[in-house]
């Protein structure tokens, strides 16, 4: 399986990269997802603009305000290795290690995982599949192979880092021809499975920034998958909470719960976070939280496990996240 023919330009600055954007051009970061799609002829860009050589996109460092700044081209391994050595960020490191496999984390980047294309059993297929069934909505066709008669695309956002970053309240800095803008990470996602990323074609993600964690913050990312070694999430629950003190009896003071791999975009389930506010987290609360998360899930039969099972597992993941936060 060979790559389609394309030209490659290695950008050396954010401005240069943005100026090279245009029809038929795609940005290449780690390439662990894009190159596979190109081999399957899902994408056939005439030009790839490499982002790895832009110094500004690299590095993990604490900000003067006590937050964390992560360059978009930082590999997931680099993030994990840095975060695991710093106690207040180590939970983020643990979450990063749940992404894919060691080899792919060595190449795949934080920005690439955030801007990951949505996935679907009927979309991530070789050309012979389309020769028989035709192009789906996501490929410009007029049919959804996953849900008959659907007029919207149900491809699933399957990145791992978006959930944890959204739960931590991270922001994204995006550069384009008109300069840079900063937005909450959740605004990177359109909610449309066919065009999941909210960035314009000439914009690139420069970095994400996490605010300084409040005192006594706790975090857990629970991921459902079939093999722990490599698989994309089939469902994910991230739970970030500040507490009013240390130890087991402490109460939540501000909490964000994010559901990922449940539909075309990761979602902050604000009601669920609100429900937990002021409470001492216990496993029993899962029964109250889970319906709020389930209401946000848009699972259909287009992944490696059935939709009903994935939805059913939300409560299990919430329970485990709560248990992890019990302290």
């Amino acid at each position: 399986m060979s790559l389609p023919r394309f030209t490659y330009t290695a950008a050396t600055s954010v401005e240069e990269a943005c100026s090279l954007a245009g029809s038929g051009t795609m940005f290449l970061s780690g390439g662990t997802d894009l190159l596979v799609s190109m081999k399957q002829r899902i994408h056939a860009p005439a030009r790839l603009v490499g982002l790895a050589g832009i110094p500004e996109l690299h590095g993990v460092a604490e900000t003067q305000a006590g937050g964390l700044r992560i360059g978009a081209a930082t590999t997931i391994t680099q993030l994990a290795e840095w975060a695991l050595t710093v106690p207040r960020w180590s939970a983020l490191g643990d979450a990063a290690l749940k992404t894919s496999s060691p080899l792919l984390r060595n190449t795949g980047t934080v920005g690439g995982n955030l801007c990951l294309d949505t996935r679907c059993s009927f979309y991530n297929q070789p050309a012979i599949f389309r020769a028989r069934w035709g192009a789906c909505l996501k490929l410009g066709g007029d049919v959804c192979h996953a849900v008959r008669r659907s007029t919207t695309c149900h491809a699933v956002y399957s990145g791992d880092l978006a959930g944890p970053l959204m739960a931590w309240g991270a922001t994204a800095t995006v550069a384009g021809p008109a300069g840079t803008r900063t937005l909450p990470v959740e605004h990177l996602f359109t909610g449309d499975g066919a065009r999941p990323c909210a960035l314009a074609s000439d914009e690139i993600l420069v970095r994400v920034e996490l605010p300084q964690p409040p005192p006594y913050a706790r975090f857990s990312y629970q991921k459902l998958r079939l093999r722990d070694s490599i698989d994309f999430p089939l469902m994910g629950v991230s739970l970030f909470a500040a507490f009013d003190g240390p130890g087991a009896g402490a109460r939540c003071r501000g909490c964000r719960i994010v559901l990922n791999a449940a539909g075309p975009a990761p979602v902050v389930v604000h009601e669920a976070g609100g429900l937990l506010d002021g409470a001492v987290p216990t496993e029993e609360l899962a029964a109250d939280l889970a319906p709020l998360l389930r209401a946000e899930a848009r699972a259909v039969g287009n992944t490696a496990a059935g939709a009903g099972y994935r939805i059913e597992m939300i409560e299990v993941l919430v329970r485990r996240a709560l248990r992890a936060l019990e302290g």
């Binding site: 059993s121 991530n124 599949f129 093999r227 490599i230």
Partner: peptide, 18 residues
């Protein structure tokens, strides 16, 4: 009749880590 998981990502053999 169409094989839907024609990749080692979606055809799940245990890896060395499993």
């Amino acid at each position: 009749g169409q094989t839907m998981n024609a990749s080692f990502l979606e055809y799940r053999m245990p890896t060395a880590l499993d």
